[in-house]
């Protein structure tokens, strides 16, 4: 841990680390304990303003918004986690192969990636979800596939750079096979550029899930997530209950801020 901080000795990394760690801690606690049962309705506490007993206030059913946010943020983070896991794994694989091999395979795969990235991912995701129907896993698969190009591109650039280094030529001369070269010699060295990409991936995944669920084409109606809650809370704004939307939005913004600062900090380190 200490080494990590010494290595990334910049303002962005520290601020991002603190915010992300705090959010993750709250989410982790929310998995085991919340101040109230997230779905418990309390007829005597409908639409309350934030107070000490209800930190974020309550909604029109008397449900504690703070408890709901803790639960919803966990669900959003889980979606982001799987999106990044699947997207990054496939992206690394594609990036490694195209970066190492080059030639026609590289050309074709990169043109496909160009085509996907030219379009705003939320727009594409919207259309695909419209066909598949809403649901947590549908959101995960759609976003994961749309995120592959960003990882593939980063890894490919790094791989085609590393490929020309002397130690790779040496390994080849010694008769090391391509698979071993990719996994043992190139992948560890591509890690520093992959790390910020993963952090930015989390940032984008949280944003995309929130936007999609907000529009009603993300998780299904009976699942919880921050975007889903933002959708619910929108109706409250003009009825004089603005804090619901405010706190949900703030939670999303903080999650995104943490990941984006973290990504920025990790990237700064690569630039030297």
């Amino acid at each position: 841990m200490k080494k990590l901080f010494e290595k990334h000795n910049n303002w962005f990394f520290r601020a991002g680390f603190v915010i992300t760690a705090f959010m993750l801690l709250m989410i982790l606690i929310g998995q085991f304990w919340t101040p109230y049962e997230p779905s418990a309705m309390d007829a005597s506490a409908k639409g309350l303003a934030p107070s000490l007993s209800h930190l974020f206030g309550t909604d029109k059913f008397g449900r504690d918004i703070f408890s709901r946010v803790m639960e919803g943020a966990g669900s959003t983070l889980l979606i982001a986690f799987f999106v990044v896991l699947i997207g990054a794994s496939a992206g690394v694989l594609i990036g490694a192969v195209t970066g190492y091999c080059g030639g026609i395979v590289d050309e074709i795969l990169m043109r496909i990636c160009d085509g996907i990235t030219a379009f705003p991912s939320v727009m594409l995701a919207l259309i695909i979800i419209a066909v598949l129907g809403p649901g947590k896993w549908n959101v995960i698969w759609v976003l994961a596939i749309l995120f592959i190009p960003s990882f593939a591109r980063v890894v490919r650039t790094e791989f085609s750079r590393i490929k020309k280094q002397n130690y790779i030529s040496l390994a080849k001369l010694q008769g090391v096979g391509p698979l071993r070269i990719i996994i043992r010699h190139m992948l560890p060295n591509a890690f520093p550029v992959l790390l910020p990409a993963i952090s930015i991936g989390f940032n984008n995944a949280v944003l995309a899930e929130a936007s999609m669920s907000f529009l009603g084409v993300g998780v299904s109606v009976n699942e919880v997530s921050l975007g889903r809650m933002l959708n619910d809370s929108q109706n409250y704004i003009l009825r004089g209950l603005p804090w619901y939307a405010l706190f949900v939005g703030l939670t999303i913004a903080l999650l995104i801020l943490g990941f984006s600062l973290l990504g920025e900090g990790l990237q700064k380190n690569n630039e030297g």
Binding site: N203, L207, A210, S211, F214, L230, Q234, I237, A245, L246, G249, L250, I252, A253, I256, L257, S260, L261
Partner: peptide, 11 residues
Amino acid sequence: MAIPPFFVAIL
């Protein structure tokens, strides 16, 4: 940069 447009809209 980190504030999503929809949150700006809500604010």
